[in-house]
Amino acid sequence: QIFVKTLTGKTITLEVEPSDTIENVKAKIQDKEGIPPDQQRLIFAGKQLEDGRTLSDYNIQKESTLHLVL
């Protein structure tokens, strides 16, 4: 699982696999929060994550925290 922290300070927990794409993660966030993926920007280690890449591409491991910017 990974954590996604929103600007409001809320933390969302997501069940993911390293092979999941960023697009996939955004879809999971939409399921939980109702935020359309095209409004979501995910930041990890100061980098904006691209939809077509996977979590493992960015070396995002379990218990990692991503930041969600709208």
Rank of each mutant, 00 (worst) to 15 (best):
I2R: 01
I2V: 06
F3G: 02
F3I: 06
V4K: 00
V4L: 05
V4T: 01
K5I: 15
K5T: 13
K5E: 07
T6L: 15
T6D: 07
T8Y: 14
G9R: 04
K10F: 10
K10Q: 09
T11C: 15
T11A: 05
T11E: 05
I12D: 00
I12M: 06
I12H: 03
I12P: 00
T13Y: 08
T13K: 08
T13R: 07
L14G: 00
L14I: 14
L14D: 01
E15S: 12
P18L: 14
P18M: 13
P18Y: 12
P18I: 10
S19W: 13
S19P: 03
D20W: 09
D20E: 09
D20S: 07
T21W: 05
T21M: 07
I22A: 02
I22S: 02
I22L: 05
E23Y: 15
N24K: 12
N24V: 14
N24A: 14
V25W: 01
V25N: 00
V25H: 00
V25Y: 02
K26H: 02
K26I: 03
A27V: 12
A27M: 13
K28C: 05
K28N: 04
I29K: 00
I29V: 05
I29E: 00
Q30W: 15
Q30D: 05
E33F: 11
E33S: 12
P37Q: 10
D38G: 11
Q39V: 11
Q39L: 10
R41T: 15
R41C: 15
L42N: 00
L42W: 01
L42F: 04
I43P: 00
I43Y: 15
A45Y: 09
A45N: 15
A45C: 14
G46P: 01
G46W: 05
G46F: 05
G46L: 03
K47V: 15
K47Q: 14
L49G: 01
L49H: 00
D51W: 04
G52C: 11
G52K: 11
T54C: 08
T54Y: 06
L55D: 00
L55I: 10
L55N: 00
D57A: 06
D57S: 14
Y58K: 01
Y58A: 03
Y58T: 02
Y58N: 02
N59V: 04
N59Y: 07
N59F: 08
N59Q: 09
I60G: 01
I60M: 03
I60Y: 02
Q61T: 12
K62D: 13
E63L: 12
S64F: 09
T65Q: 06
L66H: 02
H67R: 08
L68Q: 02
L68D: 00
V69N: 06
L70H: 09
L70R: 09
L70M: 11
